[in-house]
Design a protein around this nucleic acid. Sequence first.
DNA 1: GACCAGGCACATC
DNA 2: GATGTGCATGGT
Length: 217
Amino acid sequence: MRKNNLRLFLKQAYCRLYQCFGPQHWWPGETQIEIMVGAVLTQNTNWRNVESAILQLKQDQQLSFRKLIDISPEKLAELIKPSGFFRLKAQRLKNLLHFIEREYQGQFKKMQAQPLGDLRNQLLTVKGIGLETADSILLYAFGKPTFVIDAYTRRFMSRHQMVPADIAYAPLQKIFLSHLNPDVQTFNEYHALIVQLGKSYCRSKPLCEGCPLAPML
DNA sequence: GACCAGGCACATC
DNA sequence: GATGTGCATGGT
């Protein structure tokens, strides 16, 4: 019963969100390296600030794997300053780049060829790459069929009484993975739509007027 | 001026 | 295993 409720909710919510917001064309980045950089920079940070940091990297012509692996951590930190936690994030980016260099000789195609589970486990060994960042990279940079759980996703599901607010990452991810078509495009679009919805929620009221999901309740 | 934003690692209990 | 804290900027 519970399972059917979840499946129905996920399906209906998706339809409504898609009708309301349309295709989101995620990730908001063009290249694999840009997506990976964005995934790290957005940790606990408003995307607007991330965009500003990425723009600085572009303007300084540093947004390529080779440039980023050669740049000094200090210079990198300076460029990504607008995204906050800049020294920390510069180091995390370096950790990720060095991992890719060490394990895959800097070749994204080799990473791409790796099975989802193996690559995920590897990414999680990189200091500074947690569950959400790893899944964002897997789904959006490499087109692997995994689901990204973030603050918006947890809020979305708990506010609609589908899960407790403090549900852990893995069980919430399992709900999406087991109740949706195992399809990269669906996972991509659904998470993007949840973020779009999250940005339109009122802070004070969980389900204010104008929320596209209000009619479902 | 307080609070929040698409986390993560680490210390401590 | 749960909870607290540092990391730091920019927008509301």
